[in-house]
Amino acid sequence: MLYAILCYNQEDVVCAWSKEEDEAVMQKLGVVQQRLTQEGRLGPVARLMPTTAATTLRKDREPPLVLDGPFAETKEQLLGFYVVDCESLDGALQVAKDLGKANPGGSYEIRPIAMFQPGPAGA
């Protein structure tokens, strides 16, 4: 089953990382990703730009309203996601724990995927 691992963390903390700290985290995450790739279990991976670059379209009215910023004002922001193939929730949790060791702080939401279309863009 495919799982999405949604990465939530405090954006202002992540933005305060020095270039070296950021690179160190990315490198550690890369080791986990490489292992998953070798096992043929890693799908798309994305790191999102800061929420300051986000725009929200509210469709509950006509014409829809365009708002600046992320959809939800939360303490921790959605900063990225992984798609991983796992046998069970237990397996997905293990992947999330491995990623968490490489990138402390924040939370991962593990969400089974109902429909998945990798699509040609960005490949």
Binding site: D12, V13, C15, A16, E21, G105
Partner: peptide, 15 residues
């Protein structure tokens, strides 16, 4: 990143 540097980061960001 060690726990201490996470704390430092959190303090810097909260400052």
């Amino acid at each position: 990143m060690t726990e201490l540097s996470w704390i430092e980061g959190a303090i810097t960001a909260a400052r």
